[in-house]
Each structure stands twice: as C-alpha cells, then as structure tokens.
Amino acid sequence: MASQGTKRSYEQMETDGERQNATEIRASVGKMIGGIGRFYIQMCTELKLSDYEGRLIQNSLTIERMVLSAFDERRNKYLEEHPSAGKDPKKTGGPIYRRVNGKWMRELILYDKEEIRRIWRQANNGDDATAGLTHMMIWHSNLNDATYQRTRALVRTGMDPRMCSLMQGSTLPRRSGAAGAAVKGVGTMVMELVRMIKRGINDRNFWRGENGRKTRIAYERMCNILKGKFQTAAQKAMMDQVRESRNPGNAEFEDLTFLARSALILRGSVAHKSCLPACVYGPAVASGYDFEREGYSLVGIDPFRLLQNSQVYSLIRPNENPAHKSQLVWMACHSAAFEDLRVLSFIKGTKVLPRGKLSTRGVQIASNENMETMESSTLELRSRYWAIRTRSGGNTNQQRASAGQISIQPTFSVQRNLPFDRTTIMAAFNGNTEGRTSDMRTEIIRMMESARPEDVSFQGRGVFELSDEKAASPIVPSFDMSNEGSYFFGDNAEEYDN
C-alpha cells in the first residue's frame, strides 16, 4: 500500500469516517454492505422474486439502478423543472426478469421514488447511507470498465484509444464523492478537466460571474484530485501550473494530454476495490451473516471469500459463452479491467482472455432483445487465490505491452514486471518541450526514458491461498515475461453508450 500519510484510507472515504482504527473501519464497511443486503432482500420480497430470480444479476442491476435514481437529487430536480413526455419524475423502474413456464419473461416495473427511498433508509437504520449508494455506483463503473473500451470518449477529448488503461471510473457520476474520486484513473480526471476547458473556450461566460466562481472551485478541486494521483514531483508541479492558470485554454489542454500520456509509464495511484452486485450481499445477509459484527474490507480476502460461497446467475444470449460472461463479471467484481492478464489468470486459476476474444456482450439486456431465446446460467466467480488490492500504480518500471492497449494499471499487489510499449508511448511525445512547463516536461520525458521494462514492481508481494486469511504465506508467482498482458488488445469491444 502506498503510505497513507495525511490521506484517509478508502474504507474511511467509503464510510465518510473520520480517523478510525482498522477494526472500526471493518465494522463501518460491514455496516454499509449489510445495509445493501437488507435493502436487496426487501426489494425481492416487494417484487415477489423467487430465490433464483433474486440471484439473477440482471435483476440486481435494475434494483441497484432504481435506488441510485431515487437518490439522484440533481436529476430529480431537473426532471421536475423540465417535464418530458412519458417520463414521470417521481417514478423509477426498469426490467425485471421472471421464469414463467420454463421461459424467461421481461416485466417492466415502476415504483415511486419516495417508496424506494423509504425501503433503502429502513434497511440502513434510517440513514441515507450515501456510502452504500456510492458502492453500487463503483460496481456499475467497474462493470462498464470491463465491458467497454471507451474509444470515442478518448478520441473526443484528444487522447489515444490505446490509453484505455487510464480510464478507470470514466462512467462514474460526478456525485460519487471521495470514494469515487479515489477509483478514477488519470485519464478519467484528464477527460473531465478537458471537457471543462473546452467549454470555457467555447463559452465566454463559463468562468464568469457567480456560476463561474463555482465552476472555478470545481476545476481547482479536480486538479488537486489529479495532482494527488501522480507520484513524481515534476508531474505534480505541472498540475500546479494547470490549476493556477488564470484562464484555462489550449496550453492547459496540451499540458493535460501530455500528463495523461506520461501516466502510461509514470503511473498514478488509483484505488481498486472489489464492489459486488447487491444480489451477492442480499443472500449472505439472508443466511444470517452479520457483516457489521464480522467486519468487512473491500481490499482484502473478504470479497473473494464471499464470491467463493455465492451463487449468481445471468441471462445468456443464444451465441454467448457462459464462461466468457463469467470472466467479464469476475473482472468487474475485482475492479480488474486494466490489470495484467498474466496476473489475473494466476489468481483466477483459469486463463483470462483479452476482451476481443470473449464471445459475450454486456450483462444488460436491451429492451428490444428477444426473450424467447434467452437461457440462463451460473456465473463462475470463484478464484484459485486471493491478493491484496493496490492503491498505487506500482513502481515506475515497465515491460512490453500489446498493440491495442499500451500499458496497464495494476489492481493487485503482486510481484511482476509491468508491461508497456515504450516505443509507441515515446513516439507520441513530439519533443515539444517549450513553453512555461518546459523544464517539467524535459524531466518527465527523462524519467520515462530511463524506466526499464525488466524491473520488478511490488517486490516480494504474492497471492494467498483462500485458507490464508491473515495473509501469512505469500506465494510469489513467476510470469512468462514475453507473454501478452493487455485486456483490450487489438480490440473490438462495443462502445459504451450512456
């Protein structure tokens, strides 16, 4: 783990906690998980779902989305002020799938948001429990990260689609708070800032007046979040320049895209947490497990152990491969979309394939898809080993990566060399080191050039047997250095459309 220093740990961010010791953190995270579980059980009762239907990941996603929508204050306010045809701002819903006479049927349900809020609060001892809501947002974000390569979004903001390893959390809503900021990748933060800068260039009043003052505060806050992700002084200094700019424009845009590229080699610290679907927490609570009393951590053995003992089902389209669908969801559960496939294969105990080789589309089923041909199958979400999630980018030494994705962002704290394609990355730096950030740029390029592919990161860190909950005997895996390590390699994943 990167030293926490003055930073709060993510469990504290996750639970809005002030400084807590490890036991208190485990208890408050457990409380959050228990609340999600209780809410899910109650919703299944309301909807009269069978046990099997309640364990269907598509039903879980609909129920999670309903509660997130019920608590989305800004959108609710907007919907009330701008009524649109056929949208009731006070209601929320989605597809629920039921097994009827041996076939899967889709039923569109509609609930009062007020009623959903009441059920959620009741499951969370009367609190709004925003930490639990954020947790579900991060699960949705991790699922998107594993399912889609955001080529269009990258290109629109002047970045290269091969930089997708920097895009963790790119679909997280803005209201996801400190826990959300911690899991956002460098590219995601750059993209958010670039969008602001572009608006400022096109709209003279963007930075002016009372609204402009708020915009400015948001801009500086985002700059500080991004600065905190960088691990070298030169990158941090460049972020200070971007933040202090009187009138952010093209120079800042250039600096930010430069920094994003540099992060492929001088990786930023991005938190990883295993956020599971509500249909995993519900049955665990129903079986009598007391998360608050037992304590829970999002970055240790607990999620692995929970998945070892969970039964989750998914709808499967006619030509999809259930094992591939399982891999997709497994990666999402562990926030591992940008991790090295060699490491993932070792931990999972079966070969993890790149996205383009998977015969599976996303987990969600569109409303126009034919239910007649839908089957369902068990998702295999178990693992051979477990490993500690990392909050750091690993040290800054790398190795060759593949054509589709030119770097990785480690999820697990496991000893290995970190793949990246130096030639491709360095070719993108057209040696432009003039301007006010020239000395920093020169320094950053120097550090990137001296990074050695064969150097090892996370020295001495290994994986653990599932029986080793105290992480007492690390097993340090050895990897084939020459092997392909990137998930979005030469990829044809669908595009994420909101």
Rank of each mutant, 00 (worst) to 15 (best):
1 M>K: 13
1 M>I: 11
3 S>W: 03
6 T>M: 08
15 T>I: 06
17 G>L: 07
20 Q>M: 05
21 N>G: 14
36 I>V: 12
38 R>T: 09
38 R>Y: 06
41 I>C: 06
42 Q>F: 03
45 T>M: 13
49 L>K: 01
50 S>L: 07
55 R>P: 01
56 L>W: 11
59 N>H: 09
69 S>E: 05
91 K>H: 00
99 R>V: 05
108 L>P: 08
120 W>L: 09
124 N>H: 14
134 T>D: 00
145 D>Y: 11
149 Q>H: 12
156 R>I: 02
157 T>V: 15
168 Q>H: 12
176 S>T: 15
179 A>E: 09
182 A>F: 14
185 G>C: 05
186 V>S: 03
187 G>F: 03
191 M>H: 08
198 K>H: 05
198 K>G: 00
199 R>K: 06
201 I>S: 05
209 G>P: 07
212 G>R: 09
215 T>E: 01
216 R>D: 08
223 C>S: 12
228 G>K: 03
235 Q>S: 00
247 N>Q: 14
251 A>D: 11
254 E>Y: 09
254 E>D: 13
262 S>K: 06
271 A>Q: 00
275 C>G: 14
275 C>P: 08
276 L>D: 11
277 P>F: 04
279 C>M: 15
288 G>V: 14
289 Y>R: 09
300 G>S: 15
302 D>Q: 14
307 L>Y: 02
334 H>S: 00
336 A>Y: 01
338 F>C: 15
342 R>K: 15
353 L>S: 00
354 P>H: 04
355 R>L: 05
357 K>V: 05
360 T>V: 13
369 E>D: 12
370 N>I: 10
374 M>H: 14
380 E>D: 12
383 S>L: 00
386 W>K: 04
393 G>L: 00
398 Q>A: 15
418 L>D: 05
425 I>W: 04
435 G>H: 04
436 R>I: 09
440 M>S: 03
443 E>I: 08
444 I>N: 10
450 S>T: 09
453 P>D: 14
463 V>S: 05
464 F>Q: 05
466 L>G: 00
471 A>G: 13
475 I>Y: 12
479 F>R: 11
481 M>G: 13
487 Y>G: 01
490 G>P: 08
493 A>P: 10
497 D>G: 12
497 D>K: 00
